[in-house]
Nucleic acid binder design. Sequence first.
RNA 1: GCGGAAGUGGCGGAACGGCAGACGCGCUAGCCUCAGGAGCUAGUUGGAGCAAUCCAGUCGGGGUUCAAAUCCCCGCUUCCGCACCA
Length: 843
Amino acid sequence: MTEYKPQQLDEKWQQEWTASKAFEVDVDPSRPKFYALEMFAYPSGHAHVGHVRNYIIGDVMARTKRMRGYNVLHPFGWDAFGLPAENAAIKTGTHPETSTLNNIAHMKGQLQRLGISYAWAREIATCRPDYYKFNQWIFLKMFERGLAYRKRSTVNWCPSCNTVLANEQVIDGRCWRCGSTVEARDLEQWFFRITQYADELLKGLDSLTEWPEKVVVMQRNWIGRSEGARITFRVAGSDQTFEIFTTRIDTIYGATFGVLAPEHPLVDRFAAESPEPQAFRARVAKFRSLDREARLTGAVEKEGFDTGRKAINPFTNEEVPIWIANFVLAEYGTGAIMAVPAHDDRDYEFARKYDLPIRIVVSHGDQTPASADAMTTPTTNYGVLVNSGPWNGREAPAVISDMIRDAEKRGIGKGEVQYRLKDWGISRQRYWGTPIPVIHCEKDGVVPVPYEDLPVELPKVAHFTGRGDSPLAQVADWVNVTCPKCGGPARRETDTMDTFVDSSWYFLRFADPTNSELPFDPVAAGYWMPVDFYSGGVEHAILHLLYSRFFTRVLRDVGLVNFDEPFTRLLTQGMVLKNGAVMSKSIGNVVDPDDMLQKYGADALRLYVMFVAPPEKEVEWSDAGLEGTFRFVFRVWRIVDHWAETVGGEGMPESSLAECTDAERALRRKTHDTIRRVTTDIEERMHLNTAVSSLMELVNELYSFSEGTAHGAPTRGEPPAGRIERPQTIAALREALDALVLMIAPFAPHTAEEMWKMMGHVGGLAAAKWPSFDPEVAKADHVEVPVQINGKVRARVTVPADASEDRLREVALSNTIVQSHTNGKTIRKVVIAKGPLVSVVVS
RNA sequence: GCGGAAGUGGCGGAACGGCAGACGCGCUAGCCUCAGGAGCUAGUUGGAGCAAUCCAGUCGGGGUUCAAAUCCCCGCUUCCGCACCA
């Protein structure tokens, strides 16, 4: 018996694949393409099994599709810019570039030891000038189109990372990366106008039928479209006005006060005009800080004060008080609202607290309280309007569009759509990122760097302090330049780009990773894109995936691509836990794949990770489970080794089903049944766990079948003797073993390659064809059909698998057990159901 | 509060309205072995029975159907996302 040494097989075949460039590909319009991609990696230093689960999932898909005849692009790269490397530099003095390149080298080795079939010739790293040059190129295109712009604004500032965060990067008032409490700061920032694509990004979600519903919903909520109206209120006794946004204009007759956000522009004017400006401002300031504090802790106490000013409701013409309160958000809508306490939870809470008037204007029949005083909770559903002048008796939603039309006619408002989505702030006051390619000239202002001067390369900075401003500001000979327009003295922009810019288009770069003129060749991208199968963590459900959809549309408008959606099918893989927690260095529960490779080899590890649960589910790591799949690979190895000499070879002996014994027919049937199941489990359902279990069943069947032959099943130290002469037996075994080896290859590629050779085949597995499914064989043999009487299975009958329904009915009813149950009763119905199953109904 | 997903053995999980618990882990017994944390065979939802077999059973309660883990309604629980978005 040939000894099974997984570690040696890993090494042997990995070298072979590299030498033969087995996974490198070129554009080939004559073949169907398949683009399999896993979210690229941040080079943190070491990949743990949680990370590699994702790469194995993608590799199973890529290897399967390759054997199915597709021209498969399966590349990998590094999301190499980012704060951790810079923070490490501050701590240890190692330059971010040095540590990043070291980390990449180590992690690349890990992935290669796992046997992931990447086209390494296409490897990219975002920190290389040949990559980030095109971040800058795309930035300039966006600048030309007004999609990149600069504005002063209050931003989220992380005091620990010393940089700005996008709204998406603030979670519960804390930095997504380090968990520090985020502060507000006023800074000049660069923004990408993603809001211009808000509606398109929202509508595009409908076409993403192969994305998890959950991710689509999260994006839809994030974009947060709401239809309503913008209505102008005049301030009584002045020419000042302010606008409010509402989705419930039907309740406007119940607006008993107005509320401004503390940051609303009118607040400063009110303060200035008030008798005691100082006191006024102090109160506002309190709400501003309160607002922020409240949002951090989640303890939300609504507070506010009456400005003493009145607003005129343009529908009722009555004067209502204007308040300032912490619960109105400056960033959303117009930063001001009409408060309708009878029909809005927040307004109701506020009105009760400060004893403001409540007026019911929507009736819900019996449910409606007799008076506002009797009201205990606001009613927020649509209903019939009351106390609403000419609109009484009308009903929402129909009345809403009529009221908007009326407001438009009278010039006091208009219908409007609001989005929760904000423009994307991309400026970061850090070193390790893409320099923003603009120059600030005293005379010409903001001047874009000319295309021919790209890339603007990062200068080598020797010293990292981690204080305040961008480290780039201290590199004088880099910062001080001449203006490209006037030749006068000028300074470079010293902020760098958010690293999410890097990851918003990298999937396109893989189509043409060495292009020095353009981000990528449109023809190459046209062939490979869109990504057919994309997998990664659900933590990127909003940020990365939304930005990538945005960039794809921008590049479409620039003329580089001709499609809208970059990722056809998305799989969000679940995390791997150890002792109930996500693996992390600080908890000390990291499972290093290299330890597992040492002990069991790549194939057992790959099989285990695929088998333990469906890919999208979270899993708990188990050493015992890994032992189990190791035993399985060993079991496969032994059965192949046992028979290779006896039944191996190319071609297939003559064998018709009719000549087969029952056992041979059963094995052939199992083989084809397994082919069907494994193929659909991988390609259609993405149930990689059940694909593996089907293969285990086939192996079990092979052992049972072997028991029935003169050679027996493989046991330790008993090599099979002699040859099998019967062609039907050879055919059944060879067919089953070939199919097994081929289908296990995506999961256990090293072992499969070796077994393929043992079976006497020439040429590697990548070039071999996936076994083909024969439905005739799959349904051969007799089948046992259960017979149900009044919903309960009472008997089983055996019929040829191709028996007609009439024949099946006849056999079932003649069965003795069935007859004992139906004896003397009227048979009302006999149904032949799929399954198959005979269902008899008696009275 | 709003939105989403899900509740099946000791455990991970199977079952695209048709024999519930495939496959694996763990456990039990036997075989083999100098030995085994190796291998092979059998068993493993609960209850009754020597047994063939029977009864109950997929969070709880109703319903649709010849047939429900699966579809519908009500309730409970868990996980996840958003969270003062007007």
